[in-house]
Structure formats: C-alpha cells, structure tokens
C-alpha cells in the first residue's frame, strides 16, 4: 500500500512538476506548489493558468480522497465553492467519488477533479458563470445530483432511493424505489448499482440523512408533500438504526 502511494506521488510530481512534497505526518502527506495547466473542454475556450495549491493526501487514501486548498490568495472570497475552512469544494461527496473512480489515482484526482474545478473558476472569473453548471448549496445539491444521475423526477423519489440503499443496500429483485412497479434491476438498477458500489454504509447514511432533512424541511414549509407512509417508513428506519448503534 505504502509503495503504491509513493509511486502515485512520484507519478503526480512527474506530471505536475511544480508540486513539492512537504510535511509528512502519520495523518497525511502534503504537496505544495504551483499547479500549471492548459485545460480545454468541448465547446469551451482553452484556459492556461497557474494556481498555488496545497494538496493534502490523508493516510486513509484512497478510502478517503485528498483535499485541496488554494494558498496563493487567487480564489476570491466571494467565490462560493470553498468550505469555510478553506478547502475547495470540488463536488458533492458521492459525485467526487464517482468522478475519481474514472481514473483512481492522484493524477486522476488532479486531472478529473481539481483541474476542471480550477478551469471552472477561471471561466467564472472571466464570464461570471460556471461552464459546467454548479450544484445548489447544501442538501439541495445532493438531491440534485441524484435526480440528474439516476434520471429521477422529484425529491421524493430521491428519498425513496436512499431509504432503499440505507435499509437494504442494493437489492435488484425489490420493486424499484422510483415507484414504477418494475423490479429495481429492470428499472433504475443499472445506474444505482454503480453508485452503490462507490458508497460505504457511512456515506449512504450521510446522504440519506441529508436528503431526509431537506425533504422534511420543504415539507414543513409546504413546498413538498411528503406522503405519510414514507415519513413513517423513514422514521422507523432511523429509529432502527439508532437502536442498532446503541
């Protein structure tokens, strides 16, 4: 494992020459330096730029993904996609994982997640809008991801899907949680199975709670009518989980 990480770091430094390896603790390895790129995307202008970044690779990598800070003061304070603690908010966690798995390595992380993010920033700086769109803040962004990725039609379906994952994991022979009446494997199964494989029970639980919170809030504000049966089932499920952990 250690050797793989060392070679991943070497590969990263070979490609992005400006990155210097700095402090190493038991908790993480840090790489610091200018990141130069010339990025292009179909239908968009090529952008060449350079950012001072700090890339922090946790010792739990690749189970947990690296995080990044921009250290040059380039990213403006009014840019919204930065955590309060200065970490760049590359994507909602499950989307970040999904994108990372396209090329699961540190180079892949930079190529697939970081550079597109920085490209998006440069584009926003120039034109005031995001080239590839942005997720809504908070739980709404997570719901939005599932709606788009699984081709669902509303928030209630997202909640049903996550309740299913949280309760059973992936069960192809169950009825599809979208409510179509078809078996899951013949309906949203293909896309959902792929996502489920990237999840851990912990990340499923987090997304489930986030979506539930979002739906309950909209329900209480009268913007959404959460069916009583669904409310009951989520409630039962939560109680059960709480019971298990006791």
């Amino acid at each position: 494992m250690k050797r793989t990480l060392a070679s991943e770091i070497a590969e990263l430094q070979q490609k992005y020459r400006g990155l210097t390896r700095v402090l190493e603790t038991e908790a993480c390895i840090e790489l610091l330096g200018p990141l130069q790129f010339e990025a292009s995307a179909d239908g968009y202008e090529p952008i060449t730029d350079e950012f001072e970044i700090k890339l922090i690779v946790p010792s739990s990598y690749p189970k947990e993904l690296p995080w990044v800070r921009e250290t040059g003061g380039r990213i403006k304070e009014n840019y919204e996609h930065v955590f309060n603690n200065g970490k760049l908010c590359l994507a909602v966690p499950i989307e970040e994982r999904l994108t990372f798995e396209q090329q699961p390595s540190l180079v892949g992380f930079v190529d697939k997640l970081l550079v597109p993010y920085l490209y998006g920033y440069c584009f926003w700086e120039k034109h005031g809008e995001h080239p590839f769109g942005e997720r809504e803040h908070g739980e709404a962004g997570i719901v939005g991801f599932y709606v788009e990725k699984l081709g669902l039609s509303d928030d209630i379906q997202v909640l049903e899907v996550l309740l299913h994952l949280h309760q059973y994991g992936y069960r192809g022979h169950h009825d599809c949680p979208c409510g179509s009446g078809a078996k899951l494997r013949n309906c949203h199964g293909h896309a959902l199975k792929k996502l489920y494989q990237l999840h851990t029970s912990e990340t499923v639980r987090r997304d489930f709670c986030a979506v539930l919170k979002y739906c309950l809030q909209r329900d209480s504000e009268g913007e959404l009518e959460l069916p009583a049966a669904l409310k009951r089932r989520t409630g039962n499920c939560l109680e059960k989980t709480a019971g298990n952990s006791r």
Binding site: A39, S40, C89, E95, Y117, E136
Partner: peptide, 12 residues
Amino acid sequence: VKVTIENPARPW
C-alpha cells in the same frame, strides 16, 4: 500540463 475535461463534476 494539457488536460481535456470530460464529464466534469460540478462544484458544490
């Protein structure tokens, strides 16, 4: 480094 962006994630 030349990077071609495909299927980018969206910032959140």
